[in-house]
Design a protein around this nucleic acid. Structure first.
Length: 593
RNA sequence: GGUCCGGUAGCUCAGCUGAAUAGAGCAACAGCCUUCUAAGCUGUGGGUCAUUGGUUUGAAUCCAAUCCGGAUCACCA
């Protein structure tokens, strides 16, 4: 049990027995004591001053006295300042905490609870390569899945590939028109980039045709509708749905190029999935649910045959769920897929990692599923994240302002190489080790940069100012880990030395121990709030505290053997915690750098 | 227009289930490498927490209004 929990429990007991008042543990506010005051944890008394009808000072003194008396192994002393009861936790408690946990590489990871969670993330379109926005999605999705695993859940990672629709047809048409049978092999370019290039070519040609039509006297609207290349794309979609063999073949061909490209990128950035769905297989799902919904009067039919749901009572609008021609819309397949996955996994939570532009969509999806009575409905959670923008505004593929994922990753690795070479600390590394290290650092910097902020906030990425390697960054934490490992490599005493420390802890020794002790609680918080940034901030704080500790205390040349062992334990547990915490963000930590 | 999200140091962000003098990083400035990795550490300066009003013993945090920025409200996905 965590210290904070123990404090709360003890406080509840104390208040009950002193004042005969029943309190819930949650109603007791326990904070870390501010550094300028004496103590480790602080109970804020104002909340129950009224109920108990005593002055905060009196209450604090009575409570403090009782707590110290009843829990001598936990509390050693207390002081009351205004409405704050500051409690000092005993040295023995921290020392005991360290000696029982320091060698546990799994520290912070919870036991399995067999609760199933589905995480859907990445979900790319097959008409263009991944860009910076997708990276935020992938890193978030992967991280939240790992965090939930660490919190005891049984996690299934899924991906829904949008492999059909008008946008794919655009790339196909452009390739037919301008491609000259070009392939990724003949052009020596990744398949997703090749297909993306034709998507751009389509839009260029489309724009040109519109201009020509306008010059010939058409209105802008007419021109947009009548441009031959757009008509060709629309025809291709019709042909695709009709299963026309040559269209299907081209579609399969081009998609296979894209998948080969995606696989390379995913492998590079560390994304993986337990199950991949393709919209070409799932886009017809949900039709039977529309029928059921009509029978249950959840949906209603208009005269023209289209099917709707009225969500005005829920503060939303009316929403179409089936077109008048009987075909389904986007949300219909999401409902169908939700049902299918319910049958497949029976997950308690379904987390959709999707940008905040779809907030409304997911509100509607959850409501509809609830109204249809799908068992998985209440567990639907939209992990909504803000767009990644450039200083100039949003990224626009048509304007060529998109930051390509592969390019960016390569650039980061390149910067990692430059900086590492400048420092010249790894001259004895083999070529393979260097390549590995540059990737670890470059990708670590990028992932940390994208994960350290609250997911729901939009963020600005400035490609001109490259991502920093100092301060609140991935490499800073990696460096701290490497430093510790360097010390531990030089000593193998830790595992064999059974010791008993009796002296007191220095300020920084204790601060580090106190922070390390909260790791399990931080993982739990990140999991319940679906927020990896909590973990990123925590890991940074640990590294910061360790570095201060490191600069003030010698570990291998400590004042005495006891201190040395204590510090080795602190360092070991710090290394484990940094490694685990970074792993949960999808970031590796090197042994040396 | 309706709904939702955001506005905290020059910049990027924590803090937002109310509590002590609002915190980090970057940038600026001043120090610290014959001692475990200086991708580090220490210190200094830097704030009308968008504005106004309210609730409260106590508000960056809760409520209301206003201003600014964004998203969304398709028989698109």
């Amino acid at each position: 049990m965590s210290v904070v929990q123990q404090v709360k429990q003890a406080a509840v007991k104390a208040i009950t027995s002193l004042y005969q008042i029943e309190l819930r543990e949650e109603s007791i506010l326990v904070n870390a004591t501010k550094p300028e005051f004496e103590g480790d944890y602080t109970i804020v008394l104002f909340a129950f001053v009224k109920q108990i009808k005593k002055s905060p000072e009196q209450l604090g003194n009575e409570l403090g006295e009782y707590l110290v008396q009843q829990n001598p192994s936990l509390f050693t002393s207390f002081n009351v300042i205004k409405g704050f009861l500051n409690l000092s936790i005993s040295n023995e408690y921290w020392i005991n905490f360290l000696s029982t946990n320091y060698d546990n590489a799994q520290f912070g990871i919870k036991e399995k609870n067999n609760e199933k969670v589905m995480v859907e993330y990445s979900s790319p379109n097959t008409n263009k390569p991944l860009h910076l926005g997708h990276l935020r999605n992938n890193f978030l999705g992967w991280s939240i899945a790992e965090i939930l695993k660490a919190n005891g859940n049984d996690v299934v990672k899924t991906c829904v590939v949008n492999d059909r629709g008008i946008h794919i047809c655009k790339s196909m048409v452009a390739w037919q028109l301008f491609g000259n049978n070009e392939t990724p092999e003949t052009k020596n370019v990744k398949g997703d980039h090749l297909v993306g290039d034709y998507y751009v070519k389509f839009n260029d040609a489309y724009k040109k045709e519109i201009d020509e039509l306008i010059a010939a006297g058409k209105t802008k609207e007419q021109a947009e509708k009548e441009a031959p290349i757009m008509l060709a794309a629309q025809q291709m979609l019709v042909d695709w749905e009709a299963g026309k063999p040559d269209v299907i073949e081209l579609w399969k061909q081009m998609n296979s190029w894209v998948y080969a490209g995606f696989d390379e990128t995913y492998k590079n950035i560390g994304s993986d999935f337990d199950k991949v769905y393709y919209e070409s297989n799932t886009y017809l799902l949900g039709k039977d649910l529309v029928k059921q919904g009509l029978e249950k009067n959840v949906f209603y039919k208009k005269e023209d045959g289209s099917v709707w749901i009225d969500l005005t009572k829920d503060g939303l609008d009316e929403k179409v769920v089936q077109r008048k021609d009987g075909t389904s819309v986007y949300i219909t397949q999401d409902i169908g897929l939700a049902e299918q996955r319910q049958k497949e996994f029976n997950a308690k939570q379904s987390i959709y990692v999707v940008g905040d532009e779809q907030n409304y969509h997911f509100k509607v999806l959850k409501l509809i599923c609830q109204k249809l009575g799908l068992p998985s409905a209440d567990g639907i959670y939209h992990l909504s994240y803000g767009m990644v923008e450039l200083p100039t505004g949003k990224m626009k593929s048509r304007e060529g302002t998109v930051v390509d994922a592969d390019d960016l990753v390569a650039e980061m690795i390149n910067i990692a190489r430059q900086k590492t070479e400048e420092l010249g600390k790894v001259k004895d590394f083999t070529e393979e080790e260097l390549i590995e290290l540059y990737k670890t650092i470059g990708l670590g910097a990028l992932k940390f940069f994208l994960l350290r902020v609250d997911p729901k906030k939009k963020m600005i990425f400035n490609p001109e100012e490259s991502i920093d390697f100092h301060g609140f960054t991935g490499p800073f934490i990696q460096y701290t880990h490497a430093r510790i490992k360097s010390i531990l490599r030089k000593t193998d005493e830790v595992a064999s030395f059974g010791f008993q420390v009796s002296g007191s802890l220095s300020l920084l020794e204790k601060q580090l121990a106190v922070q390390l002790e909260t790791f399990p609680a931080i993982i739990e918080e990140a999991a319940t709030e679906h927020d990896p940034s909590k973990l990123a901030i925590y890991v940074f704080n640990i590294a910061q505290t360790f570095n201060s500790f490191y600069s003030q205390h010698s570990i291998t040349n400590a004042e005495n053997e006891e201190k040395k062992m204590l510090r080795l334990q602190l360092a070991t547990l710090t290394a484990h915690t940094l490694k685990t915490g970074m792993h949960l963000l999808g970031i590796n930590v090197p042994e040396r750098m």
